[in-house]
């Protein structure tokens, strides 16, 4: 019998974020500040998949991804899945859900938007789920996801 070899070491307890597009894994680590935790983190970059494309994968020990984090993941990896692991077993598995809006996570690409200078959280509405086009609550301009940078 052929034995499959795991590309990334299994974890005992925590979360696995799978099906992250290649190149996005490091951005997710930084965005969720996983690099600042003392928990054990295992990452796989440019892993091969059965359809020939590359993917990234993140495993975080003793951490469960919140619903809000799961929504925010959609900015980087709209087709990712989150696996919750207990005692090396998957106890829950769910896909990332694109929320209807993103609050306080992105900067408006319009440099003349009032949100840059004022004490408010940015807010963007998802205009088009397929192309991930977001519309600013303040300046009302719409941009593709690739035009946005994340706030610190």
């Amino acid at each position: 019998m052929m034995q499959k070899k795991l590309q990334v070491e299994a974890i005992q307890h925590g979360s696995v974020i799978d099906h992250i597009p290649a190149q996005q894994g490091v951005k997710i680590l930084k965005f969720f500040k996983f690099t600042q935790t003392n928990e054990k983190i295992t990452i796989g970059l440019n892993l091969s998949t059965h359809n020939g494309k590359s993917k990234d994968l993140i495993k975080v020990e003793n951490t469960f991804i919140s619903d809000e984090q799961a929504n925010q993941l959609a900015l980087f990896a709209p087709n990712a899945t989150i696996n919750q692991i207990k005692d090396f077993k998957v106890v829950n598995k769910f896909p990332v859900q694109l929320p209807s809006s993103f609050i306080g996570v992105l900067a408006c690409p319009n440099s003349n938007c009032i949100s840059h200078n004022e004490p408010v959280k940015t807010r963007f509405y998802v205009n088009n789920k397929t192309t991930l086009k977001l519309k600013c609550h303040y300046c009302e301009k719409s941009f593709q996801r690739s035009f946005f940078t994340e706030l610190d």
Binding site: N110, N112, C113, I114, S115, N117, E118, V120, C136, H137, Y138, C139, E140, K141
Partner: peptide
Amino acid sequence: HPQEGAARL
């Protein structure tokens, strides 16, 4: 106001 979104804010 000269900036977009000023009135909403």
